[in-house]
Design a protein around this nucleic acid. Structure first.
Length: 202
DNA sequence: TACTGGATCCCT
DNA sequence: GGGATCCAGTAT
């Protein structure tokens, strides 16, 4: 499959603006073993402010640290982190240098490399649970800390344009699993494609 | 040097 | 509803 890569300029806007734009686009990870590609169906924006309140649900809220450094990079790189000691989450860094913003990819619909995805997930047949969650899609697409800070203008990982054959409805809700965030808990920064079976539950 | 808890997942 | 599993961040 031929993919048209997003240009650097596409990552200069804020996370909350880019998060819904990523829906329907392809996330591609090219490895020696397989080319993984998935249609992004669910995202969450992190960082910045909403109604004048800082996003205390973001890793960037406490400032630049060793772990969160990629979030403060200029938009257009990947931020991968280890969660609960056993899973990984992949984010698209956005905005100008120092902004501390990123879009978490919460779910994808497998497009290419499906056999390898099933192997990575130890599953025998295609089901939504293969990639309907941030940890699941990373395991399926073999995304680990080895991919942290990758430049999205490179060949290994990138976002590709996709033309939607039919218009899709985008739903906007508060984000998931950030009850610890006093302010950010209610920010309407989760976006997903309505009725898509690969969207995570909750 | 010790402690705490998490942008999750899976099984019970 | 709870356990797995480990490291960054924070407190001693």
């Amino acid at each position: 499959m031929i993919y048209t890569k997003w240009p650097t300029a596409a990552y200069s806007a804020s996370a909350q603006d880019i998060a819904p734009c990523l829906l329907g686009q392809y996330l591609v990870h090219q490895t020696e073993r397989a080319v993984y590609a998935g249609r992004i169906v669910e995202t969450e924006a992190y960082g910045g402010t909403y109604n004048g309140k800082a996003d205390d649900g973001s890793h960037a809220f406490h400032g630049l640290t060793k772990r969160t450094a990629p979030m403060f990079h200029q938009g257009g790189i990947v931020y991968v982190y280890l969660i609960y000691g056993m899973y990984h989450c992949v984010n698209i860094v956005t905005g100008p240098e120092g902004a501390g913003q990123a879009v978490l990819i919460r779910a994808i619909e497998p497009v290419e490399g499906i056999e390898a995805m099933l192997e990575n997930r130890h599953m025998m047949q295609m089901k939504p649970k293969v990639t309907n969650g941030p940890g699941k899609l990373c395991q399926a697409m073999n995304i680990t800390l080895a991919q942290n800070q990758l430049d999205l203008t490179g060949q290994e990982m990138f976002v590709a344009r996709a033309v939607e054959k039919q218009p899709v409805s985008i739903i906007c809700t508060p984000r998931i699993h950030i009850d610890y965030a006093v302010n950010g808990k209610s920010f309407p920064w989760r976006f997903y494609i309505q009725h898509n079976p690969y969207v995570s539950k909750a």
